[in-house]
Design a protein around this nucleic acid. Structure first.
Length: 828
RNA sequence: GCCCUCGUAGCCCAACCGGCAGAGGCAGCGGACUUAAAAUCCGUCCAGUGUGGGUUCGAAUCCCACCGAGGGCACCA
């Protein structure tokens, strides 16, 4: 099909639809974005990866932004001539598919794979530079077979284990959740209030890696957004302190507490254990048993949101027993209170009301003694009920008296260690990753439960453990996994002893699927291995990862954990999966996130219909720094479209031949072109895409003027400029750029035209403007040579008429010369 | 409550290692073209950088305090 460029140009606007339908099939045929695995290919390799999408429907504005930004990076490396791996796949297990399937009486696969096709087509139209041959879907048996295989590797290493515990339960999703998936007491996915349940579930031992997850952040500094690192640091929550053993009257075993303030040990006046911990049951005395049981029932009924309310009164119950302070033999009443968490530390704390606000609140509520042991020169906590947590000299503390906080901590730990009553200790806030889900549409946990052999790994040759084909109502949530209802599927034999046994009926958290997908892309067609060592060596780790900040402590933390485990298992030879990370913001409308419930959705398809793919992409990238949110009310896709039309018109106007030598071009324009090349290159290197586009816009304006009222359309410099504009625009507006490239007389595709290098000769300036200040105020401007000497400049400045006038009658003090840009004459 | 990031024109955003506050865009205004409008083109108005101090010859930039916005953690001992 040939489209006459007269029609395309339309003088004032351009026909977006025609350009799009003209070039899309050409690109499909050229397939320019396929990564090369040819060993003879000497080009440097780079792996650019976008966080893969969940196939919830068609692509939306959020995808449009994220992938437009990721594509700038990928296309930049293509232009630079690198061998780029830029794959796409789908995170295709998950709850929405299951809910859709129940409604429609189908299997979740139907809805899922339909949506994937829709999104794949939209991606193609949106012009993203993917290597489609690397495509994967986490719900394919060929993929989840390896998810299961990896689970088994973890299991064999003792890093996947089952335990009974009080777990987060989402009543709406009808499944348990990992800690990371509970946000302020609500389900991260559906915002329902999370409750607690006592269940036996599978966990990954991510806590074993807490220290390394922290330490290895050193490698990521400067390469990952600061705030992501901070969030992960907060989440891991390392705290240093000590374990201290307290004897319990009438018990054989001491109880250990964790404290970050061992220096305040002499100020302990009571002892608290978490009511839902086994400790509480063990410590409660006969008389207090019924009181305690009653309290425990209440605690269990309290929702997470209630429990977290900051103004909530402290509650608790005396257990009728006493602990003994190891350093001064004081008797401390033992209480159970729900402000102490069974999951953190040892589930028991010493109560030091004078120097811990929570303990003080509790002491106030139950009229317990307050003993000050650190003199901070603040009002007495016993009177003000404001705990003093600051530094000061120790008092009432025997051997610690007179020491400051740091010294006292050091000393008391020495004392405790000497007497074998405690030791230095580190605790993490991070909990193990609960990975079981009571849902259907996920990878079945490849474990067989045998009465005799207990938990037995499915043999690797038997993988994948395929999902049974359940449809519609069979998937309705019942509080247990729908797989439990698939009676034929459950029944199997124990791989160890051959006796009848049953399959585990839970599926894995979908974050397990996404914790390793980046390893699979280069090996997506390998049927013998999860990932091929050669392929890993070629491409991994991911050089540039692009995605939203919402995964700061979910996907990104889990992936880092996975990589470290696989590194320990000898399966990968790096310990961080993503060398560099770029977070893009969200698209919002009128200040709030677009959402169906708010009804403020802008439809991506409609925007593309109205302005075209290029204008939408340009709008996304030009709106501001990539990490900032875009308020759609603040941006102008119409303006973007207008700019693209202007750029395209330049290409139409160029009158020199495609083989003309630029060297004869008009120098001023050439200098502007090369300055722009330099600046745009530097800006893209640091992800300042919005500013890079502003520079290209500037060059478009300059070139327009050169054509209309300067050197004219036939000057080679005009061609040089427009060629660069076309190449630069190819990163963000591929259709327009391709059309320009074609108008300039070249064959497709501009995507691989090659990035332009700035000529240093043309970057040199013959003269610069020097600012002359008198006492900091601008008095004159001089046009001088860039390598003018300080003396010369000073002489020149002092002979300037306006300077002389200003200086008249005053005495010259210091003269600050910053050749060649500035000179400041200070008057005394 | 603790921690992090950010406050520049009506709006979105630039401004290198402290050196003329303005590159780009949106909106507005004026003009050209048009019978008119749209579109297009040309031109143009607009802030002294959240507030108050400090350092400096010189501060949007560095330091301190405060105000405001956004985000993270939050009964984690």
């Amino acid at each position: 099909m040939s489209i006459n460029s007269e029609e395309l140009e339309g003088r004032h606007s351009f026909n977006v639809d025609e350009i799009q339908s003209k070039w899309l099939p050409v690109w499909e045929k050229l397939n320019p974005f396929q990564a090369s695995d040819d060993p003879a290919d000497q080009r440097p390799r780079i792996y650019v990866l976008d966080m893969f999408p969940y196939p919830s429907g068609d692509l939306h504005m959020g995808h449009a932004e994220a992938f437009a930004i990721g594509d700038v990076v990928a296309r930049y490396w293509f232009q630079k001539g690198w061998n780029v791996l830029h794959p796409i796949g789908w995170d295709s297990f998950g709850l929405p598919a299951e809910n859709a399937a129940i409604k429609r009486g189908e299997n979740p696969a139907t809805w899922t794979y339909q949506n994937i096709e829709t999104q794949a087509n939209s991606f193609k139209r949106y012009g993203i530079s993917f290597d489609w041959s690397k495509r994967l879907h986490t719900s394919d048996p060929e993929y989840y077979r390896w998810t299961q295989w990896l689970f088994l590797q973890f299991f064999k290493k003792g890093l996947a284990y089952r335990k009974a515990s009080s777990v987060n339960w989402c009543p709406s999703c009808q499944t348990v959740l990992a800690n990371e998936q509970v946000v302020a007491g609500e389900c991260e996915r559906c915002s329902a209030a999370v409750t607690k349940r006592e269940l036996t579930q599978w966990y990954f031992k991510i806590t074993d890696y807490a220290q390394r997850l922290l330490d290895d952040m050193e490698q990521l500094k400067g390469k990952w957004p600061e705030r992501v690192l901070t969030m992960q640091q907060n989440w891991i929550g390392k705290s240093e302190g000590a374990y201290v053993d307290f004897e319990i009257e009438g018990a054989n075993e001491p109880v250990t507490v964790f404290t970050t303030r061992p220096d305040t040990l002499f100020g302990a006046t009571f002892f608290v254990v978490a009511p839902d911990s086994p400790l509480a049951k063990k410590l409660v005395s006969g008389q207090q048993k019924s009181e305690f049981e009653k309290y425990l029932e209440e605690v269990k009924k309290t929702s997470e949101i209630e429990r977290l309310a900051s103004d909530r009164k402290k509650t608790g119950v005396f257990l009728g027993t006493y602990a003994v302070n190891p350093v001064n033999q004081e008797r401390l009443p033992v209480w159970a209170a729900d402000y102490v968490l069974s999951e953190y530390g040892t589930g028991a704390v010493m109560g030091v009301p004078a120097h811990d606000q929570r303990d003080l609140d509790f002491a106030k509520e139950f009229k317990l003694k307050v003993v000050k042991v650190v003199e901070t020169n603040e009002a007495d906590p016993a009177e003000t009920f404001i705990a003093t947590a600051g530094d000061g000299l120790l008092t009432n503390s025997g051997p610690l008296d007179g020491l400051n906080k740091t010294e006292a901590i050091k000393r008391i730990i020495e004392i405790l260690e000497e007497k074998n009553l405690g030791k230095r200790a580190i605790n993490f806030r991070l909990r193990d990753w609960l990975l079981s889900r009571q849902r259907y549409w996920g990878a079945p946990i490849p474990i067989i439960h045998c009465e005799d052999c207990k938990e037995v790994a499915v043999e690797e040759e038997s993988l994948p453990v395929l999902l049974p084909n359940l449809v519609g109502d069979q998937l309705s949530p019942k509080g247990t996994s729908p797989l439990a209802a698939a009676t034929d599927w459950i029944k199997t034999t124990c791989p160890k002893c051959g006796k009848p046994a049953t399959r585990d009926t839970d599926t894995m958290d979908t974050f397990v699927d996404s914790s390793w997908y980046y390893l699979r892309y280069p090996s997506n067609e390998n049927h013998n291995k999860a990932f091929d060592a050669e392929a890993l060596k070629k491409w991994l780790p991911v050089a540039q990862y692009v995605g939203g900040v919402e995964h700061a402590i979910l996907h990104l933390l889990y992936s880092r954990f996975f990589t470290k485990v696989l590194n320990d298992l000898g399966l990968v030879d790096f310990n961080e999966p993503f060398t560099s990370l770029l977070n893009q913001g969200q698209v919002i409308l009128d200040g709030s996130a677009m959402s169906k419930s708010k009804g403020n959705m802008v439809d991506l398809g409609e925007q593309i219909e109205e302005y075209g793919v290029d204008a939408v992409r340009l709008t996304m990238v030009f709106a501001g720094p990539p990490e900032d949110d875009i308020d759609w009310a603040d941006v102008s896709p119409a303006g973007a479209k207008k700019f693209l039309a202007r750029a395209l018109r330049l290409a139409k106007d160029v009158q020199s031949a495609s083989d003309v030598s630029f060297a004869n071009g008009e120098k001023t324009l050439r200098q502007a072109v090369h300055k722009t090349i330099k600046e745009v290159t530097d800006l893209i290197d640091v992800f300042r895409f919005n500013v890079a586009i502003a520079r290209v816009m500037e060059l478009v304006n300059i070139t327009r003027k050169a054509i209309d009222s300067g050197c004219g359309a036939a000057d080679p410099a005009v061609r040089e400029s427009v060629e660069f504009i076309s190449i630069a625009l190819s990163l963000v507006a591929p259709y327009t750029a391709e059309e320009m490239w074609s108008l300039l007389g070249f064959e497709p595709t501009v995507a691989k035209a090659g990035w332009r290098e700035a000529d240093p000769e043309l970057l040199k300036q013959e003269s610069v403007i020097c600012v002359v200040q008198v006492s900091g105020k601008l008095r004159a401007k001089l046009s001088v040579s860039p390598d003018i000497s300080e003396e010369e400049l000073k002489k020149l400045a002092l002979s300037e008429a306006n300077v002389i006038k200003t200086l008249a009658g005053s005495k010259i003090g210091t003269v600050i010369v910053r050749a060649p840009k500035l000179i400041n004459i200070v008057v005394e």
